[in-house]
Structure formats: C-alpha cells, structure tokens
C-alpha cells in the first residue's frame, strides 16, 4: 500500500477538524489516546488527541490526513506526525489576528522538525474583519512574496474547497520533488 501523509495544522479554531472531515471518506477518527512509556507506565500517562481521516483512491493507494493535537503545547505527538508527513498545510483564520503569532510559532516548530513542503490555507476569509492574504503572509513573517509558500483560500466546510487546497499542497510537494531530482 502506497500512502501519502498530509498534516493539517494551525491554531485552535482554524478549522483543522472540519477540513479533514470535509474530505475524508471514513468517519474522522478523533483519537484520544494514552501515551504510555513502558519505563514509566505506572506514573506517567499522557492523553493525546488528534484527528485522522483517509481517502482511498485505488486498491493500493491512499491519502492519510492528520490534524495536529488541539492542545497548545508541542509534545511528542506533534513530532511523530510531522516526521511522518510528506507535506503539511497551516490553516489560519483570516479574521483572527490574535492567532497569527500562534500560527507563526507552530510554523517555526514544524520547520525546525522537518523540511517537508508546506502551504498556508486561509479560512474564514469572508468573515468581517478578515485580513487579506498579503498582509497575513506579512504577519506570518513572509515579507518577500517570491519567497513565501503558496497561500490558498479554503472553506473548510466545503469538500470542493478542501479538495482544491489538498491539490495545491500535493502539487507543491510534487514540484518540490521534481526540483529535487532535476
């Protein structure tokens, strides 16, 4: 089975779970698991939670989507997900400027852990007070338009819009892998 893993990340409330639910063919699994360390089994049990969705498009081909845990601390689960990912999308709610710094923190964490391609997905762009893509990119630390990742607008509630965002992410990954081999 050939599997591509995409991670969906972003601040709480950016639309990660909805995004995965909109495109997954299975009921999204909201894993709420105990992380157990055998050596510390008795005293240490940590709860981790993340969303998992799947899209099977051939007998031996599937796309797996993982949403990063909702909690704000960056724990081992984030690390496992990003290390296993082929690419990720950072979702940012365009109408919540107070979350831009958190989005920046997440991006720095992800970049540090893995060099995989990423794109930025802007949600809630039709809400009052929403910032435009150029200013959000600036707020996320990308002053140079030619040196920033692709930015797409996405309605996490609509399958077609989410599919379009995933296409953008896959194509960005694809062009990156072509550039790497040429």
């Amino acid at each position: 089975m050939e599997i591509m893993r995409l991670v969906v990340t972003g601040p709480v409330g950016a639309g990660k779970s909805t995004f995965i639910r909109s495109v997954s063919e299975i009921e999204v699994v909201d894993t709420d698991r105990r992380a157990t360390d055998e050596a510390l089994l008795i005293k240490k049990r940590t709860t981790v939670a993340f969303d998992f969705g799947r899209l099977q498009f051939g007998p031996d081909m599937a796309l797996h989507l993982y949403g990063t845990p909702g909690q704000s601390r960056f724990d081992f689960m984030w690390d496992i997900l990003i290390q296993k990912a082929h690419a990720y999308i950072l979702l940012v709610a365009a109408h919540r400027p107070h979350e831009f710094r958190e989005a920046r923190r997440i991006m720095m964490f992800m970049k540090q852990r893995s060099p995989v391609p990423m794109i930025i997905g802007l949600t809630h762009t039709d809400c009052p007070g929403a910032w435009d893509a150029a200013n959000i990119a600036l707020a996320l630390g990308y002053p140079n338009p030619s040196r920033r990742p692709p930015v797409v607008t996405v309605n996490a509630n609509e399958t077609a819009s989410v599919a379009q965002a995933v296409i953008a992410l896959v194509q960005h990954t694809w062009s990156g892998s072509l550039a790497a081999t040429s």
């Binding site: 105990r34 992380a35 157990t36 360390d37 055998e38 240490k44 724990d75 081992f76 496992i80």
Partner: peptide, 8 residues
Amino acid sequence: APPPSSLA
C-alpha cells in the same frame, strides 16, 4: 515532552 516508547 520526550516521545514515549509506545502509544496505546
């Protein structure tokens, strides 16, 4: 937190 040896 460091990664655990396994996940349940």
